[in-house]
Amino acid sequence: MIVLFTDFGTRDPYVGQVKARLAEHAATQQVVDLLHEAPDFNPHAGAHLLAAFAPVFPPGCTFLAVVDPGVGTPRHAVVVQAGGRWFVGPDNGLLSVIAARHGDARLWRIIWKPEGVSPTFHGRDLFAPIAAEIARGDFPADKLTPIDALDVEFDAGDLARVIYIDHYGNAWTGVRGVPQNAHVSVAGERFLHGESFGLVGKGEGFWFINSVGLLELAVNRGSAATTHGLAVGDPVQVQRLN
């Protein structure tokens, strides 16, 4: 299985081109579109989203992860093995949180330079062929070199900021493991805890732990982002009580 995680969006031709390259090199592999609306140009937010999503997928799968505002610059390309899963993408911090949260992580730099690679589309020309080889069980040792550390490493602890806003207007944060009695506030507004949408009144704001273990802010049958003016990057205050 190859899992796609990008900021490419779905209205443009980029995802289709990546899938065509994957079909060329790994025709028998199932390709799953996990997310193509990761926050644009924001590998920090993407790193925390990717780390939260990864455990939902079975060991052995390969993630092709591209949030790459530095494409075409001297930034390196890497392969990470962590938690029994594979990750292929840029060395800009995007893969650093998942690597740091697993003591078994192994790292390689991609040293292969394919002929005709586009300086603006490494997702298609560089990352996709490597991900395809790994997914079909042909580890490309001749195209990689082991490394001890990534060039860019984000703090692997919780990120107390909004990291994603879904189409409902729910605001995901990079905070995990919050007890129900915690005080949570953002943009000057206090949110009370609720287990789920149907357990709070229509139009009421609340926070909950979502299906991938992250603290999420929502308004029942409404948009937390619109109601409270929330955006990716906004700080979130979480006070854990004794």
Score class of each variant (00 low, 15 high):
residue 2 I to P: 11
residue 6 T to N: 08
residue 15 V to I: 15
residue 23 A to L: 14
residue 24 E to H: 15
residue 25 H to E: 09
residue 27 A to S: 13
residue 28 T to E: 07
residue 29 Q to K: 02
residue 29 Q to D: 04
residue 30 Q to T: 14
residue 37 E to R: 13
residue 39 P to I: 03
residue 39 P to N: 02
residue 42 N to A: 12
residue 42 N to T: 12
residue 43 P to I: 03
residue 44 H to P: 10
residue 46 G to E: 06
residue 48 H to C: 08
residue 48 H to V: 12
residue 51 A to T: 06
residue 53 F to C: 13
residue 56 V to C: 08
residue 56 V to T: 14
residue 58 P to F: 00
residue 60 G to L: 03
residue 61 C to Q: 09
residue 66 V to L: 04
residue 67 V to T: 04
residue 67 V to G: 00
residue 70 G to F: 02
residue 72 G to T: 12
residue 75 R to I: 03
residue 76 H to I: 08
residue 80 V to F: 06
residue 81 Q to F: 08
residue 82 A to S: 13
residue 83 G to V: 09
residue 86 W to H: 15
residue 90 P to Q: 06
residue 91 D to F: 04
residue 96 S to T: 13
residue 96 S to K: 09
residue 97 V to Q: 06
residue 97 V to E: 05
residue 97 V to M: 05
residue 108 W to Q: 07
residue 109 R to E: 15
residue 110 I to H: 04
residue 112 W to N: 09
residue 113 K to T: 15
residue 114 P to W: 00
residue 114 P to N: 02
residue 117 V to C: 09
residue 118 S to Y: 03
residue 121 F to A: 05
residue 123 G to V: 11
residue 123 G to Y: 07
residue 124 R to G: 11
residue 128 A to F: 08
residue 129 P to D: 02
residue 130 I to D: 04
residue 131 A to Q: 05
residue 133 E to N: 09
residue 137 G to I: 11
residue 139 F to Q: 05
residue 140 P to S: 04
residue 141 A to L: 10
residue 141 A to P: 10
residue 149 A to C: 07
residue 149 A to Y: 01
residue 153 E to M: 08
residue 153 E to Q: 14
residue 156 A to E: 08
residue 158 D to F: 01
residue 159 L to N: 09
residue 159 L to W: 07
residue 161 R to H: 15
residue 161 R to S: 13
residue 162 V to Q: 00
residue 164 Y to H: 15
residue 164 Y to K: 11
residue 169 G to V: 01
residue 169 G to Q: 02
residue 170 N to K: 01
residue 172 W to N: 06
residue 173 T to V: 10
residue 174 G to P: 13
residue 175 V to S: 01
residue 177 G to V: 03
residue 185 S to A: 14
residue 191 F to G: 02
residue 203 G to H: 11
residue 205 G to N: 09
residue 207 W to V: 06
residue 207 W to K: 07
residue 211 S to R: 08
residue 213 G to K: 02
residue 213 G to T: 05
residue 219 V to K: 02
residue 221 R to Y: 14
residue 226 T to V: 14
residue 228 H to M: 00
residue 229 G to R: 06
residue 235 P to V: 11
residue 242 N to C: 02
